[in-house]
């Protein structure tokens, strides 16, 4: 596979959210607005790429039976670094995303890519894979956030486009499930049209 197709595979064909249905908790919880979704996506992209790189570097040295604990420690370390950096430089966003930053540790996408890809492939390929999946996740979260923001608070990226409060339910929990469900339907339709 060429480097470019490694990158794009995570965006469309193996989109973590719409196709693999991984990492649902942050997807549903942090997409109350487009900017929040984007922030969460980028945070995950960072952890995913860094942990993929480190894990592909050390994979050959790690005994098979302690593989998973080692991966978890590596991922948790990067998540903590991210937490500290965000507290220092983007405190507002950190406060909004709250508990879902530490929960990147248990996001199945990160451990999934580490186990399924990074542990068996070269450093550059793993980095590419991490960036690709990360971008796919970020795009998905931004789109969900955008739809929920348009419907739920009548604004786009924080800018009001009409003088109205929007349909409250879309910002709250039920809206998250329903918007994601319908977007998945749309994604399935488009994919079957293309192929």
């Amino acid at each position: 596979m060429s480097k470019l197709s490694l990158l794009t595979s995570g965006i469309i064909k193996n989109n973590p959210t719409f196709v693999l249905v991984l990492g649902m908790c942050p997807t549903l919880a942090t997409t109350t607005s487009a900017i929040n979704g984007f922030g969460m996506g980028v945070a995950t992209l960072f952890v995913l790429t860094m942990s993929n790189i480190v894990i592909s570097l050390v994979a050959t040295q790690v005994p098979d039976k302690v593989r998973i604990p080692v991966y978890i420690v590596v991922i948790a370390a990067f998540v903590t670094i991210l937490q500290l950096l965000m507290q220092a430089f983007t405190p507002g966003l950190y406060a909004t995303l709250g508990i879902f930053i530490p929960l990147i540790v248990v996001n199945c996408i990160v451990l999934g890519r580490a186990e399924a890809y990074a542990s068996k492939n070269s450093v550059t390929d793993s980095a590419m894979d991490g960036i690709g999946s990360g971008i796919g996740f970020t795009l998905a979260l931004t789109v969900i956030g955008l739809v929920r923001e348009i419907l739920g608070s009548a604004s786009i990226f924080g800018v009001k486009f009409m003088d109205s409060d929007g349909i409250l339910a879309f910002v709250l929990a039920p809206g998250a499930f329903i918007v994601l469900g319908y977007l998945m339907v749309l994604f399935n339709k488009l994919k079957s049209k293309i192929s």
């Binding site: 050390v58 994979a59 050959t60 040295q61 790690v62 005994p63 098979d64 039976k65 302690v66 593989r67 604990p69 080692v70 420690v73 590596v74 948790a76 370390a77 903590t80 670094i81 500290l84 542990s119």
Partner: peptide, 26 residues
Amino acid sequence: MAKESSLKNMVSTLFIVCLVSSTLLG
């Protein structure tokens, strides 16, 4: 591919990984 697991290398790998990551975090 991945190494054979023995008690010694399992314990030492985990120990080293924890040590490195906690130093880094500190």
